[in-house]
Nucleic acid binder design. Structure first.
Length: 488
RNA sequence: GGUCCCAUCGUCUAGAGGCCCAGGACGCCGCCCUCUCAAGGCGGAGACAGGGGUUCGACUCCCCUUGGGACUACCA
């Protein structure tokens, strides 16, 4: 027997009240992967019914972030689609239509209690043993009474009439069967007094009218799901399938927030992380391909993605592993690609000029395996452009303060007329000189490195010397000699 | 407080009753390479939260405890 499956349609529905967090990015990624792996449709919907907090800048930031990650959508606010509009703020008439249906059928009612009254009730219930629930004061208002208050210009909210008994079962694709007692819920508000729907009502209307087949979203929405299910039922609609993915937590196991460092996609981007790395890392946070594979391009993820391997437990995000992955993807870029990513910064620093492009590429090749994020590359390249202003303290102690150091530096300096001045040549000459002096090559190399770069750890010394050129090398060796003499 | 979810190395995870005295990855440690630091290669330490069941057999199933998390708004 073959089941006729409806076309898979999923959505990512952020509220544009902030940046695209990595948690949201991962939810978007899972939806996207699911859609792409099932030949389904991925829709982007903006949940901007909170008029006070939603901003267009935030919406733009989210859109930019998704695009940067490479998560493209088939329908959305910018490109439209058959089930639009895709911005909740443009769907008021649709919500009102469904709201009216609920009102007419007696599944919802007007509530004239003010926000103030409600807040007071909630506060005084704080010390009680049980949870606060709306007392249903307006549930039984007569039709006349309602008409009267409406005529007076009072602006009511609309509440959903919660069944007082029975249980609602959420059949979750990652969590299995989850049951809720209806009596524990109160008559929650589905439309605010300004006429706009609240989240629990708007999602139902939107997911249904956009023909969403699978709702893949964060676990924090699981307790909302029974309310939504009851709305579907009251409306006589078939609900979509649900899959609640676990949360991403900060290293201290608390909910991710600004104090945990970079948490938004934008910040990672600015810090020099690669989209490929972020996508790969996020995919593995809460999902596993089933075998030992961990580095995957997005195509591989699409091929392997399935909801069965989405984990139920919360994941703590580990910046170390993220950085390692970034280093891996950084290594895969061509030098020119790395170059283009740091080009403007390099010009600003005055290091990149119109005629040192090739030299710059060589510097990138020397440094790239030594940094994990692109933004660290330039700061570690300073000595290629300016003579050291100070020398590493431990290095000074270890090399400069040792007897014979001046002689060693002088010996290297005497070699600066090497022809051609290439890494290979320089290495040959310095090594043989060390032999003549009955020294290990390292005895010449270490003080020279410190003299030229001010540091004890750098890429290969001979490559650095080639790029610096004989004049700069000589000058820096002189500078170091003067420094050492001043020490004594 | 109430409701719900979750629980394998420090972290991300594999594991769908015997294949597991538990596999991989990051990190950590050691070795190799080597002019240092990275990168790379090789090796090592490191976990089934606790207690009861069920079963010939439990990391896997059930219950309790403990611990974490989410929700409890005219936010989403």
């Amino acid at each position: 027997m073959q089941l006729i499956m409806e076309k898979i349609r999923v959505r990512f529905a952020p509220s544009p009240t902030g940046t695209l967090h990595i948690g949201g990015a991962r939810t978007a990624l899972f939806n996207w992967l699911f859609a792409r792996s099932q030949q389904g449709t991925f829709v982007l919907r903006l949940e901007d019914t909170d008029l006070g907090r939603s901003t267009s800048e935030s919406a733009q930031g989210i859109v930019d972030g998704l695009q940067w990650l490479g998560l493209d959508w088939d329908e959305g606010p910018d490109i439209g689609g058959p089930y639009g509009p895709y911005r909740q703020s443009e769907r008021l008439n649709i919500y009102q239509e469904y709201l009216q249906r609920l009102l007419n059928a007696g599944h919802a009612y007007y509530c004239f209690c003010t926000a103030d009254e409600l807040r007071r009730q909630r506060e005084s219930a704080q010390d009680d043993r049980d949870a606060y629930r709306y007392d249903g004061a307006c549930r039984h208002l007569s039709a006349d009474e309602v008409a009267n208050r409406l005529a007076q210009g009072q602006k009511p909210t609309v509440r959903f009439k919660m069944p007082q008994q029975g249980t609602t079962v959420v059949q979750d694709l990652v969590r299995g069967k989850v049951e809720f007692q209806n009596e524990l819920f109160d008559d929650f508000i589905i439309a605010k007094s300004d006429g706009w729907p609240t989240y629990n009502f708007a999602v139902v209307v939107d997911d249904h009218s956009m023909k969403i087949s699978h709702v893949i979203r964060a676990e924090e929405h699981l307790p909302n799901t029974p309310k939504q299910l009851l709305i579907y039922e009251a409306l006589g609609l078939t609900p979509p399938q649900f899959a609640h993915v676990s949360m991403i937590l900060a290293p201290d196991r608390s909910k991710l927030s600004k104090r945990h460092g970079a948490t938004s996609v934008q910040e990672f981007r600015e810090q020099g992380y690669l989209a490929k790395a972020l996508v790969n890392y996020l995919a593995l946070l809460g999902w596993s391909p089933g075998d030992d594979l961990s580095l995957m391009d997005i195509g591989e993820m699409v091929r392997r993605f399935d909801l069965d391997h989405v984990s139920k437990s919360a994941a703590i995000y580990d910046i170390e592993k993220m950085a390692w992955m970034n280093g891996h993807y950084l290594a895969e870029l061509s030098s020119e690609e790395v170059f283009s990513m740091i080009e403007s910064d390099a010009r600003t620093r005055g290091w990149l000029t119109n005629d040192n492009h090739d030299c710059f590429i060589k510097i990138i090749d020397l440094l790239r395996s030594r940094v994990r994020v692109i933004q660290d590359l330039l700061p570690s390249a300073e000595y290629f452009f300016t003579a050291p202003e100070h020398y590493d303290e431990k290095g000074v102690e270890k090399y400069f303060c040792k007897p014979g150091c001046i002689e060693k530096l002088a010996a290297v300096k005497s070699l600066m007329d090497i022809q051609p001045f290439t890494a290979g040549q320089i290495e040959d000459v310095i090594r043989s000189r060390a032999e003549i002096m009955k020294l290990k090559a390292a005895d010449l190399i270490h003080p020279t490195r410190l003299a030229l770069s001010g540091r004890t750890n750098t890429p290969g010394l001979f490559e650095i010397m080639e790029l610096l050129g004989p004049e700069a090398c000589s000058a820096r060796l002189d500078q170091a000699e003067a420094y050492i003499k001043a020490l004594i």
